[in-house]
């Protein structure tokens, strides 16, 4: 709060300096001040502008193919025609199965870290493990998936193996955001419940979790967005170059079994832009735009949820 005041009233403070002491030193100071603010501001703008330009380019080049049919049709004639249904539904499979695995473990791990863990070496070890898990390169997760799920567990390259790999990879996202959401619930609520004879778990179930839902959901949604965009971890664990699946009727929503390999949007973008020749630019850009659109709309959903729930905070 205080800092906001300090920064926002900055210009006013500058005027005051000017009024009271307009010596050469002060004048130079004010000049440097304005210069720095301007420089840093334009630097930030320079970061944002090219992005907007890039996104605009992507959308412009994708424009010719963007249509409902592009979404609902399968790739055809060696990926040079048709749409992206099979990879899109594959991505949904991977996201939801990895979510189903990672969300419960991640949320409970967050509960452990914030509600149960004391100040001891186990806690430090768990925290350290979460930090490191978040820092493991995605390609190493791919190798882990191959070594652990595909080979050791004998699942083979499949939707399941790829989803499990993604689940391990995105676990730290959920753990960290759950922990932060729980930490935002005032300690006095817990103490009030304990004083009335509620046990730790009763307190968590009735007061802490219900009041941390928004933060936890934000983390879960971020997990979805990451899992949808990842490519490296699924390269060798379950993604397939091409597979013919139905794109009409009810069957088109359930094209893959748990032990089938599947197409995925991210991998599809990689293959049609670097591995296959003769794919029109519009198809490539169209796939990229759908992938970005998917990820960004998921993130925007998370942000608006956060804003909405903050606006009706209960204390």
């Amino acid at each position: 709060m205080a800092r906001d005041a300090a920064t926002t009233t900055g210009p006013g403070a500058g005027d005051a300096i000017g009024r009271f002491a307009a010596g050469p030193v002060e004048r130079r100071k004010a000049l440097v001040e304005r210069l720095v603010a301007w420089l840093l501001g334009s630097l930030t703008v320079l970061l944002v502008l090219p992005l907007i330009a890039i996104l605009a380019t992507l959308v412009a080049k994708a424009w010719p193919v963007l249509s409902w049919a592009f979404i609902t049709q399968n790739p055809q004639t060696y990926m040079t025609a048709g749409g992206i249904w099979a990879p899109l539904i594959g991505t949904f499979y991977l996201v939801f199965i990895s979510l189903a695995v990672a969300a419960p473990i991640g949320v409970l791990a967050g509960v452990y870290l914030n509600e149960y863990a004391g100040e001891n070496w186990t806690t430090r070890l768990v925290t350290l493990a979460v930090v490191n898990l978040a820092g493991v390169p995605s390609i190493v997760h791919a190798l882990f998936g191959v070594g652990a799920f595909v080979l050791f567990a004998g699942i083979g390259r499949s939707v399941l193996a790829a989803s499990l790999t993604l689940a391990v990879m995105t676990l730290p996202v959920i753990i960290t955001s759950t922990k932060e959401a729980l930490a935002a619930v005032p300690q006095s609520f817990r103490e009030a419940c304990w004083n009335m004879g509620a046990s730790r778990w009763q307190t968590i179930r009735t007061i802490v979790l219900p009041n941390a839902t928004s933060g936890i959901l934000t983390g879960v949604i971020l997990q979805v967005s990451r899992a949808a965009g990842e490519t490296a971890p699924i390269l060798f664990t379950g993604a397939v170059f091409y597979v013919a699946v139905p794109d009409r009727g009810l069957a088109s929503f359930f094209p893959y079994g748990l032990f089938d390999r599947c197409m995925a949007l991210s991998y599809h973008l990689f293959t049609i832009s670097t591995q296959v020749t003769g794919v029109s630019e519009a198809l490539q850009y169209g796939t990229a735009v759908v992938l970005i659109g998917l990820v960004i709309s998921v993130n925007l959903a998370s942000i608006s949820l956060r804003v909405y729930l903050r606006s009706r905070k209960r204390w």
Partner: peptide, 19 residues
């Protein structure tokens, strides 16, 4: 928990639970 239910506690700062 039984013990805590035998004792009522009121602390300095009022805490209305978000219920």
């Amino acid at each position: 928990f039984e013990l805590r239910r035998r004792i009522g506690m009121v602390f300095p700062l009022p805490v209305g639970l978000p219920l």
